[in-house]
Write a protein that binds this DNA or RNA. Sequence first.
DNA 1: TTGTACGCGTTATCAC
DNA 2: GTGATAACGCGTACAA
Lengths: 349, 349
Amino acid sequence: MSNLSHGMRIGGKLSGARPTMKDVASRAGVALKTVSRVVNGEPGVTPATATRVLDAIKDLGFRRNESARLLRTGRTSALGFIADDFSDCDTARLCREIEEVAIEHGMLLFTGSTDREPEREQGLAMSLTARRVDGLIILPTPGEHAYLAAEIDAGTATVFVLRPPTGVEADTVLVDERGGARRAVAHLIAHGHRRIGFLGSDPRQYRSRQLMQGYAAAMAEAGLVAEDSWTTLTPQRLADSPVTAVFCAGREHTTAALRALAVPGAGPGALSRPVAIVGFGDFDLADFVRPGLTVVTYDPAEVGRKAAELLFRRLDGEDGLDGLPATSRRVEVPTRLIPRGSGEIPGPR
Amino acid sequence: MSNLSHGMRIGGKLSGARPTMKDVASRAGVALKTVSRVVNGEPGVTPATATRVLDAIKDLGFRRNESARLLRTGRTSALGFIADDFSDCDTARLCREIEEVAIEHGMLLFTGSTDREPEREQGLAMSLTARRVDGLIILPTPGEHAYLAAEIDAGTATVFVLRPPTGVEADTVLVDERGGARRAVAHLIAHGHRRIGFLGSDPRQYRSRQLMQGYAAAMAEAGLVAEDSWTTLTPQRLADSPVTAVFCAGREHTTAALRALAVPGAGPGALSRPVAIVGFGDFDLADFVRPGLTVVTYDPAEVGRKAAELLFRRLDGEDGLDGLPATSRRVEVPTRLIPRGSGEIPGPR
DNA sequence: TTGTACGCGTTATCAC
DNA sequence: GTGATAACGCGTACAA
């Protein structure tokens, strides 16, 4: 029974029900397959019948049900992107770029936020693979990712970004945070700083660990020994610490440092102590911020594009034979140091 | 023929092929429907057989194909969100909130960027409705939206955000940009400004028009007459214009104004002319920017939540009887003025 | 050139 | 309790 028996007719058109190929076929007085041919632009249809079909399609307002088609063909032409939080501007930029590549390949993009909760990540990943997305790009939570092995094995192309996964082998796009921190701290040292702090140390977070390693490397290369109190800094202790410069492991730490050092009521630019601030992650108006803010950044779009390209390389059958995937690739995206005068010991000018 | 005949066995497990309910059924020695019952937690299955089925599911690594299920049930449990550009931080925040509500309702979210191109919007919207998404949230491009009427009529719950659509009636969530601009300009007037400019006037853009109306209202209320040159300001002309304050219609204009007025090489804080700057849209470190930056903002999350709630209200059958939808609602979200000392005529302190 | 029969993986309707 | 069988909307052999 056609669904055209449902829905109500309003002015000859239908409301509340979608016509199917069957409906189009019966209206045009042809077989299902003929409609299919016309819709898919396949050859072997008389212009006359094609016109009849086209008219029926127009009359009925028929639009092919892509879900049904994709069930049949076995592909969904959809990708999933799972990340901590899409309201983070880097993540948003990354997402945008993935989407761009996806569109180029005729694919749509699902998105989901984990809030860094492994359970949420797993829930999202499972929901997406249950829909048989063709590919998955994941900014992994700190948790375990062995649960994805079966899906990858079953054919879901999977790429991790920004953090390496745990318990599973897969293509990964990382950022050279270590190198960035190393150069940033070396920059501070070159400008005369010796007592350099690290704000935002958190061994549980991958990026923080990488940055800390870069910090440690730069200090060691200069023959400097970091005291414990410098590397376990908090915004509260910053004002009373002996450091003359501080490396901040993220935007939230950079702003916290600025606020901690700001003199209440004195207006922007006035610091209670002359501490040079270098942070990971740039800000929109950073060049108008006082004191000067040197930053280390990377290009999220580059990460997104690289990840999407790795994904499509898998999808386009570059993997090995018979489900034995090619060995997983690991790409690293560079960081950039943007000096903004915080190299020197700052002070009111 | 079951697909288990394909794929290669590795250690008793399968690779490259996904087991179906049929496979589970034959392995557990039960009928298809019984598996379905177990998977869906339906009653009427002996604990013994249930266990057999569950074991088979585990052995095979079976995971229900959601696409197939949704084809059968007629719903996709998916929403679509179409916007200008997801790398915009407001859009990203909005998206996050929509996603949050979607997850609460057990739905997944498709996202797509239009870059303000009507063709891209239409392409995305059509792709999404072709997949029969249950709902669509759209930040409309300047183009025509009559093409969506058929989809809305066919049952796709649709909500527009931030800009009203053209050529179609639907639920819409807007921002009180007009009121925001009005209060901001009144604020400047209250602080003694008389020659107030408007930067970023663009009659083609909805927001710009709204802001301009608010600007005009505030000026009129104070008995001030804006000269043409004040309202057709460009960053280049700003430094040589007679205005003592300028209202910027967006972040890009605010930054442009700052850069236009900055004295090269003089460091942040120094302006070539003492112009008070008020802008639409806040910045992360705005309170550390010199000169002070007063802004008008709104909460993107509020827009997202309201939009999603309107959507689900439709979906949960709050519409009228038999496809006659309830009259479309129009919600307005407030704006907020954050004064940061740019009310007074600024100058080097 | 056009049509028939079947399958994709699931749910729904009925029997048994 | 359990199981054939028919849908859902579409693609694809293969026949006519």
